[in-house]
Design a protein around this nucleic acid. Structure first.
Lengths: 355, 355
DNA sequence: AAAAAACATGTGATCGCTCACATTTTAATA
DNA sequence: TATTAAAATGTGAGCGATCACATGTTTTTT
């Protein structure tokens, strides 16, 4: 193994080996035009021999640009954030940037500030925050003296934002159910501290009110299948009669499916279920899940692009980028007539399986 | 908004503001003992006023340590790698390190080399490679003059490795099935280029041979539910009769469950299924999946710890760390007698639903 | 109260690069 | 061939911190 203790070659080592000045080496590694071809080759050969890798640390210090962007993410690795991070990294690599990550355990202003400062110390050129921020919590970020784009946050945050139109997504789900003849809709929402969860809930409510209907019932989970299961059960146990259920994400939908089944309700004959996200597995749920596709890859790319504009050409920076979600119809939804109807749901809630 | 164009304060700005020399400021930010309390307070006040954040870029240049570790990961964001990355970052943060990520689109020696070199330019103190490397491909990494630990790779790689004992994991699954009386076992494996997939396959085979049994059939997927579905179907269509199925991960298991159901086989009455990973959703599959738990969080932490030892106290570095998987029994497995038995499987393979 | 030891603070050089400018070499023009 | 412009290369300073050492101040000891 190459000795780990030996220090890496510097630009001076290369200069000496090639018999030129350090500046010429610098020109070669930066593809400056005015270097004679013969010299260039000589330098390149020396670089190869010494396995020289220019230090981006030294370069950053000299140029005041790090070509590093920081990504702050929150909580445990959910499907969405993970997808975004991955796509952000890909896009960044393409544009010559590296990505440094910093995750925060809790969504407090304090933790967020710490994470951003840690990135500022690294002299990142910009920061992407993948966090379900509600508008009020973000004000202080404007003090941070570093370009910041919020991802999937409330567009009213007062900072540049890339997001998915969650209102519209929820509406898409509701209208799909409405078109199928459903009139009694319930909701299993995500954690209300999450911006997207709240938006979806509002969208659901508004779409129903717009249609002249009253929301039947709602309960909330923490995105996990388990919580979706529990929330659905709690809804069923209170005897709320609904034939359509909008669920905050696909994992919770999986739990909901289980709860409905245990309760003796069949999907989609008796209850139709619509999820959110379109995780790859949702196609193989039982039944395959109708869901609202969130284009996380695009969101990641879009937010990165927005951040880079903010960094490189601040004058052209946009305030908000919004991505539209899409309905993916599968088999967990059906027209309301296809089942045995509402009265059955009501009677069943009295003779629950576990009793 | 604080002006984005204004350059961040430096140690000299702070020194001037506090009326001390830059060295004294340096002492304060590094908690050096010999600074008078009054001076320390004065400096801290100046730091607060100027919102000074020490540049880790400059510090890295001076100290030759970046407190940065690089993580290379491969392919699209699978559950395991994602979990590990997350846990690595958490553990790194705790130990005062930052994490820079670099993902590679394809698993070639060339791509891997590029990624590692990109990290070397960033002067990372060490590199963690989350990639399903087979032993042969890693030799050249020893030339890289940077501490490297492979995660979840073949322990025979000739480089320090942290991994989960996949052989043992497969054996755990097989023995569970054997104990339930199953004698005809099939496998849906992961991509054979992946080390862990291959190890699981070997473990499966060896455990069977050790028990004096012959593997019935095997097929391979790409980790996705869809591929698990397709692979299972192909197995069923060739008329192979099995009562126990070991599947390379939980996503593929979901596909397998669907395929078996469509084929008219009930789980666990007619076929028992064992997955790998124990993703949170697997508990809510239908039926809840028996699976081999992979402790990805521990793996992430363990590999990071191993890398830091290699960096900080190379003499104490370990060559390999191995984590033992654990069997999680749920409802997708049952004793072979509980169903209608083998002959049924065989007859059903002739009258498949879709025919 | 003077000398010694301990503490507190400051100065110069350095890390590996880039920038701005100075100098040398080569090619183009008169 | 001398003159000038252009191209190629080199030099000094600085980015923001740390390290090793020098100097200045207290405190302790005799």
């Amino acid at each position: 193994m190459t000795d780990l203790n030996q220090k890496p070659a510097t630009i001076n080592d290369v200069a000496r080996a090639a018999g030129v000045s350090y500046q010429t080496v610098s020109r070669v590694i930066n593809d400056h035009p005015s270097v004679r071809e013969a010299t260039r080759q000589r330098v390149k050969e020396a670089i190869r021999q010494l396995k020289y890798q220019p230090s981006s640390v030294a370069r950053s210090l000299a140029t005041q640009r790090s070509n590093l962007i920081g990504v702050v993410s929150f909580g445990s690795p959910e499907f969405g954030p993970t997808q975004m991070l991955y796509n952000i990294e890909q896009a960044a690599q393409m544009r010559g940037y590296h990505v440094s990550i910093s995750s925060i355990p809790a969504l407090s202003q304090e933790e967020l500030g710490l994470a951003v400062n840690a990135l500022r110390r690294q002299r990142v050129d910009g920061v992407l925050i993948i966090a379900p921020l509600l508008g009020a919590e973000t004000g202080f970020l404007r003090e941070c003296a570093v370009p910041i784009v919020l991802v999937d946050a409330d567009p009213s945050a007062g900072l540049p934002v890339s997001s998915i139109n969650q209102h519209y997504g929820a509406r898409l789900g509701v209208e799909h159910l409405l078109n199928l003849g459903h009139r009694r809709l319930a909701l299993i929402g995500g954690p209300q501290q999450w911006n997207n969860a709240r938006q979806r809930q509002q969208g659901w409510k508004e779409a129903l009110l717009d249609a002249g209907l009253k929301p039947v019932a709602q309960a909330f989970g923490d995105w996990s299948a388990r919580s979706g299961y529990a929330a659905t059960l709690s809804l069923l146990e209170t005897g709320q009669a609904f034939t359509g259920l909008l669920v905050g994400n696909d994992q919770m939908s999986l739990g909901a499916l289980r709860a409905l089944r245990e309760f003796g309700l069949s999907v989609p004959e008796e209850v139709s279920v619509v999820g959110f996200d379109n995780i790859p597995e949702s196609e193989f749920f039982d039944p395959p899940l109708t869901t609202i596709y969130q284009d996380f890859p695009s969101l990641g790319q879009s937010s990165l692009a927005q951040l880079l504009t903010l960094i490189e050409t601040p004058t052209e920076a946009e305030v908000a980028r919004v991505i539209e979600p899409r309905l993916v119809v599968r088999s967990s939804t059906a027209s309301v007539g296809s089942g045995v109807g509402l009265e059955l749901v009501e009677s069943k809630s009295r003779r629950r399986r576990k009793e």
